[in-house]
Design a protein around this nucleic acid. Structure first.
Length: 200
DNA sequence: GTGCGGATGAACT
DNA sequence: GTTCATCCGCACT
């Protein structure tokens, strides 16, 4: 299953990595339960110059410390006290870049996702939205900082290619506090994919 | 110790 | 389209 190598993540352009993650497959395996989904929506967080990033201005706290590590690990944090948001850390150690995974299309272990989400039907609310997909894949803050080369959580290239003209770039969601940086087109999604979270 | 605000989702109408 | 639950992390005292 072609795990993406560490040097996919340690590159310096977080926007390129965000776009290339579209069409890749995010796997988790906890308690021997395998779940997976095709990544259909991402957002880039461009380090210390990005007002929307937790690491803006080089801020280091216990929470953001994960983002300063070398690329290729997960950064999971709690939002609104309820939602676990899953990010991929990129770039070299000391540069706090990250890609937020906002939505996936379920392909493996759908019954497990339904159980975790308490849903009896299969619809786009199963995994569309960063909080929802984390719950469906069983990701919590316990997984913060673990390697994407591990056997718990990883991203694979299943030879799904998304061409440049199938990618829509738009402003990020829920970052109005970031002033002018809120308008940056750092959100990427696959055109006409129903599993993307809704635009606001 | 305390107060405030948030990279949201779901249940409404 | 609109409202609202919900609680941790950060900044400051």
């Amino acid at each position: 299953m072609n795990k993406l190598p560490i040097n996919f993540y340690t590159r310096t352009n977080v926007l390129n990595i965000s776009k290339e993650l579209l069409g890749k497959v995010l796997y988790t395996r906890f308690n021997n339960e395998l779940t997976a989904g095709i990544i259909v929506e991402t957002e880039a967080y461009n380090g210390i110059v990005d007002k929307a990033s937790h690491a803006h201005g080089g801020r280091r706290t216990k929470r953001t410390e994960t983002m300063y590590q070398q690329g290729g690990i997960s950064y999971v944090y709690l939002c609104y006290g309820i939602h676990h948001l899953f990010n991929v850390v990129t770039n070299m150690e000391g540069v706090p870049h990250a890609v937020l995974i906002r939505a996936v299309e379920p392909i493996e272990g759908i019954d497990i996702m339904q159980r975790r989400r308490n849903k009896t039907t299969i619809d786009t609310t199963l995994t569309s939205g960063p909080g929802a997909l984390s719950q469906a894949l069983g990701i919590t803050t316990n997984m913060d900082g673990i390697s994407l080369q591990s056997s718990k959580i990883w991203i694979a290239d299943n030879s799904i290619t998304i061409s440049e003209n199938e990618i829509i770039a738009s402003p990020r969601v829920g970052v109005g506090y970031a002033k002018e940086d809120a308008l940056l087109p750092y959100r990427f999604r696959i055109k006409e994919n129903k599993w993307c979270s809704r635009a606001k």
